[in-house]
Design a protein around this nucleic acid. Sequence first.
DNA 1: AATGAATGAGGATTCATTCAT
DNA 2: GATGAATGAATCCTCATTCAT
Lengths: 194, 194, 194, 194
Amino acid sequence: MPRLGMEPIRREALVKATIAEIGEAGTLDVTVNRIAKRAGMSSALAHHYFGGKDDIFLAAMRHVLTVYGAEVRGALIMAADPRSRVEAIIRASFSDTSFRQEVIAAWLNFYVMALSSAPAKRLLLIYQRRIRSNLCHGLRPLLGARAGGVAENIAALIDGGYLRQSLGQETVDGAKAIEIVMQYLDLELERGSA
Amino acid sequence: MPRLGMEPIRREALVKATIAEIGEAGTLDVTVNRIAKRAGMSSALAHHYFGGKDDIFLAAMRHVLTVYGAEVRGALIMAADPRSRVEAIIRASFSDTSFRQEVIAAWLNFYVMALSSAPAKRLLLIYQRRIRSNLCHGLRPLLGARAGGVAENIAALIDGGYLRQSLGQETVDGAKAIEIVMQYLDLELERGSA
Amino acid sequence: MPRLGMEPIRREALVKATIAEIGEAGTLDVTVNRIAKRAGMSSALAHHYFGGKDDIFLAAMRHVLTVYGAEVRGALIMAADPRSRVEAIIRASFSDTSFRQEVIAAWLNFYVMALSSAPAKRLLLIYQRRIRSNLCHGLRPLLGARAGGVAENIAALIDGGYLRQSLGQETVDGAKAIEIVMQYLDLELERGSA
Amino acid sequence: MPRLGMEPIRREALVKATIAEIGEAGTLDVTVNRIAKRAGMSSALAHHYFGGKDDIFLAAMRHVLTVYGAEVRGALIMAADPRSRVEAIIRASFSDTSFRQEVIAAWLNFYVMALSSAPAKRLLLIYQRRIRSNLCHGLRPLLGARAGGVAENIAALIDGGYLRQSLGQETVDGAKAIEIVMQYLDLELERGSA
DNA sequence: AATGAATGAGGATTCATTCAT
DNA sequence: GATGAATGAATCCTCATTCAT
């Protein structure tokens, strides 16, 4: 059955399987074999296309970040004023795509992976910087010098939403999570610029 | 040289070694052998005292939570009014004992461990509930019905401080981290009760 | 681009690539993939032409022996008297074609391969017998019954030259290696026939 | 059944099993599993005591060299005059201990291993230097400046004996091999010093 | 109380080889 | 004629865990 041009298909299947598997297990302690099996191929092929386990994880992480980034960018297109720019980012963070059990589990695991893996750390920092920058860009006109700190806090509240969702017994829905962060945003906006 | 009552000494040594080792590696992927070695004993003895690797991790986790809880309680003793109760918890969270590389790394790893280990999850939830409860207790007189949400946000900001400390390139000092959370607290207090 | 009569071209390319690869690695632990890559084709094609890895090695071995044999024969054509027959073989053994890093490495590896591969052993013995025979043919008129032993010793000294070249830190040049064996030959000739 | 002080016993068993296994297979392509099994233990234990496959091979090689060296030294003790010093080395080289199928196979394999393994090469060179030095020491009083070259040739003839034994169809016995080298030695001695 | 000894189980990785196109 | 696709089979190695002493 080997057709031509399978590489991108296989890679995508592996990335998705990786996220699913991590989400299911809650750990990075997932065998390449399981991932490959779930992606419908042998582990040898997975190695062939990615080189090694870490590379598979990195690719999966990159995919999560890419999708999230795309969604943020998409939402930003529609944003007319500064405030709605910030809102766009917050909403994208809790969209149905990103705010799902398995994706959240992947997120947390990658955060921890970044503690011991230089490439993972690099990737995470790039993404973090981008998000902060986007947030600041929206907040600066409204809050001036306070923009940086508030951006940081918004990021923390978003992470907090993820954590609660993953560990909490109660399943939070995205809308509720968005509301919480938005309330904080409003509070800061009321206070005004420094 | 086996003396009487070695058990508590051994256990403590293992728990400390575990935290140190996790902090150093940034992962739970630490061998029992290394932990035992660092604690000055054979891995067989570690198993003898704890039963298995998971139990060692659980004990280490319990220790981290216990120390943190004790520090919070200690700070609460000195708190006269509601606001300072809340402040006490925040300050304790960033004390020199808890806000250290290795302890933070352990924290994050335990968070992720909770995704796949029921006992770990249980432990974490108990502690979370206690902290939230303490925060609410202090916030209720000041914020009324809004206390719960604000408590949650404060918790999120504290976690945010930990994350920034562990992953960020710049080392944050405890005082700065405290200030950030306090500013948020003041903002909410200005706004007043619902 | 498949043209007619590609087979001999492909085979030759593979054989040369095999020798080069073995020479570079110093081992038979060379993947078919690398060999094929170096020969400018896919490993599947290599299998198509040779059947399997061992066959590739055998072919490479055969090639080394063939080239060496040809050179010996070529030198023998010019040899007028018995002594120069022997000399011709010795000189051919250290010619620029055979006395090269990669060829020597291949040689040694093939020697060892003969320990575990019957076809390789057969091949090697055929060649050895031919060389001994050639040497004897030249030595008999000069040394009589002693020819056989001396031929054996000359062969050993040639192998010794190869070993020194491959393992020694100092690079020996062919001329020096030839001289060593010739000195031994002279010594035996001085002594005369038995 | 675990008793104390097993390490040296296990190591020795592994070294012997390694040589036997290599001798039987004719290759270094021998699995750690087989070696360990032959030595009566699990492969995990083999790794525990040696670290890795290469280390096992190196240890085996070191053992072969050590035994050979000891035998040479032993023979040298009995040597009264220079000539018998040289003779001692030659005889030791073909003693029943060293001149055995399996040991010879190990030798050849290690020669080839030295082409690609730096530690193996180092080991081999040390041994070679020692043997050459011993030979020279005995030859110098007899041959003066020619000692070095003759030593080299004797070494080559010894290697030649090994090769013939391993590849040849006819089994050579040690006595015959010794005689061949001794004849060469006599020839050089007749000729005298330079 | 304490440990060296020992192993089973499992996992990442590699590679020769096959096959459909 | 040629290759990308694919895999089964092996192999090294690690590690938690057990046990006799």
